[in-house]
Design a protein around this nucleic acid. Structure first.
Lengths: 192, 192
DNA sequence: CTCGATTGTCTAGCGGTGCTAGAATCGAGT
DNA sequence: ACTCGATTCTAGCACCGCTAGACAATCGAG
């Protein structure tokens, strides 16, 4: 049996290698540069090997997205856990979210811009995605204000952060005023 | 001279045809389906003709974006002009913006998601883009509140709308609660 | 009215893409 | 040592954005 186990282990390792390499390449040169040929060359296998792990490029993006969701959830929780006062917690969350988007643009795109073939906002949504939203909800729920559904408030706050993140990165907003924008957003949206 | 003029006119007409056809095709089947071959076939010319009008696909996207910016500015102004009360004006603007994004997804992508080779938020930004932002500013400026720069407020409000529009269309937010989300956003962000 | 130059458009093709059929190779179990 | 199934590769498909060079149509000068 141990032969079979070894093979399975090696196979899992190679799958990790694919995802890690795809992410690396995407962060270095953008998702457009992540072609099946380049990716295959980097992992030192031929193209068809990729298709024995994933249905296609889309699923590879999806795998990077799931990895990113877990990290983002952790980053948000880490940034908010030790902060005193709900207002400052919300501000810390906002900064952590935008930091994540800025420093992991490819992962952020995989999560929220590209089609990774994942189900969102549904019953069968993968656990990491649900948990990422839960991480936002944990902190933002307490700033929703009376009579406002925490989930709804979280969605709106999240959308605002997403808008700031994407418009800034796409050159539609200048990065200079990023700080004041976040302050304004937190001051107005969060009820503390 | 009239021969030359006729030629110039015909050339301009063909350029319009390219832009209109590209937009049509993008709205029908998405930007991925707008290939130079398909576009050329639809306008009943060969591929290279496209390159005598535009440097490449990117510039065609840019042309659609400029057209969209003008329309969006008009839509926003039309939706807000006859509305009484600043709060309701802002709400009308928000609804008009999201309506535009929903009903012209390809144009919206050309404007704010794709690379059309246009300069944003700069001195040499094309006039239609400046004017679209100006249309938002005209209405949102009066809801910025004391001591808050109208431009900054407009950017934040715009980013929030952009987040709602894109996350909804990408399936990350369910469209059911779109109404309450907008209400919440307006109530919290706008000071009236 | 003819003829060279200019302009405009086309055909054909380059190197790239995601993806796959079928050949070739490897290795585990007899 | 050999067989046979699993694994991996080579080679290829149809498509992409884009362009060089051939060809046809038009214009202006003689």
């Amino acid at each position: 049996m141990s032969v079979k186990e070894r093979k399975e282990r090696e196979r899992a390792e190679r799958e990790r290698l694919i995802v890690v390499t795809a992410r690396e390449l995407a962060e270095q040169q953008g998702w457009d540069a992540v072609t099946t040929r380049r990716l295959a060359e980097r992992i030192e296998y031929s193209q068809p090997v990729l298709y024995s792990h994933f249905r296609g490029k889309r699923e590879i993006i999806g795998a990077v997205a799931l990895e990113g969701a877990t990290e983002m959830a952790a980053a948000v929780r880490a940034a908010t856990s030790g902060v005193d006062g709900p207002r400052e917690r919300v501000a810390a969350l906002a900064r952590a979210y935008l930091d994540f988007a800025e420093h992991n643009p490819a992962v952020y795109d995989a999560l929220f811009q590209l089609d990774g073939g994942l189900a969102y906002a549904r019953e069968d949504t993968p656990e990491p995605l649900k948990d990422a939203f839960a991480a936002l909800l944990e902190c933002l729920g307490e700033a929703a204000g009376d009579g406002v559904h925490p989930g709804l408030f979280t969605e709106v706050f999240w959308a605002a952060l997403h808008g700031l993140a994407t418009l800034t990165r796409a050159g539609r907003l200048l990065p200079e005023d990023a700080g004041p924008r976040v302050e304004l957003l937190v001051d107005r949206l969060a009820i503390v």
